[in-house]
């Protein structure tokens, strides 16, 4: 009898560990660090999906104001097979301290990625040559073509932008 109590305690402790591990795992998946090359591989697909990539940061006021647009039910009903990727330009040193708590507090449902690049001059043009580097900025990809917008978008403007990629 003694042994089985000890056993079940051991199992409890063990499953606690497993659970903690599991949560940490899902959690770190939410803020995967990606290079521009990895990001472009992810969105340049021939699968008819529409990828909406938004560049933002927790320190960027207009970006934070714009975020609800990307999780709006109306948007996801309007465009089926829509995948939103919120690419954060937060500083890597702030990932645990600022970015992750921000995602948790705001119960963000769309996938957040943290950009892992050093010199903007090397990668800004790869997103779009007309981009000055100001955020927010949004790109839409579908079957290897893309449309780009610098500055904030409201829901109507985002839907209009999505329309342009179907033609």
């Amino acid at each position: 009898m003694q042994l089985s109590v000890f056993d079940s305690m051991k199992r409890m402790v063990l499953s606690l560990f497993v659970l903690t591990g599991l949560f940490t795992h899902t959690y770190s998946q939410q803020v995967e660090e990606v290079t521009i090359k990895q990001l472009l591989q992810r969105v340049n697909q021939q699968n008819d999906s529409v990828y909406v990539v938004n560049f933002w940061a927790t320190w960027c006021g207009p970006c934070v104001e714009e975020l609800p647009v990307f999780s709006a039910d109306e948007l996801h009903q309007y465009q089926k097979h829509l995948k939103v990727l919120l690419v954060s330009l937060d500083f890597k040193s702030q990932k645990e301290k600022t970015l992750i708590p921000f995602i948790r507090q705001n119960k963000m449902e769309q996938e957040v990625l943290l950009l892992n690049e050093r010199n903007p001059n090397d990668w800004v043009d790869l997103i779009n040559p007309s981009w000055s580097g100001a955020i927010p900025a949004t790109v839409i990809y579908k079957n290897s073509s893309s449309v780009f917008h610098e500055g904030e978008l409201n829901l109507h403007e985002l839907k209009e932008l999505i329309k342009t990629i179907h033609h």
Binding site: P120, A134, P136
Partner: peptide, 13 residues
């Protein structure tokens, strides 16, 4: 050279 470079920044309000 270069005469034009790109940088990230906060959009002007």
């Amino acid at each position: 050279n270069p005469t034009l470079t790109k940088a990230i920044g906060c959009s002007i309000k």
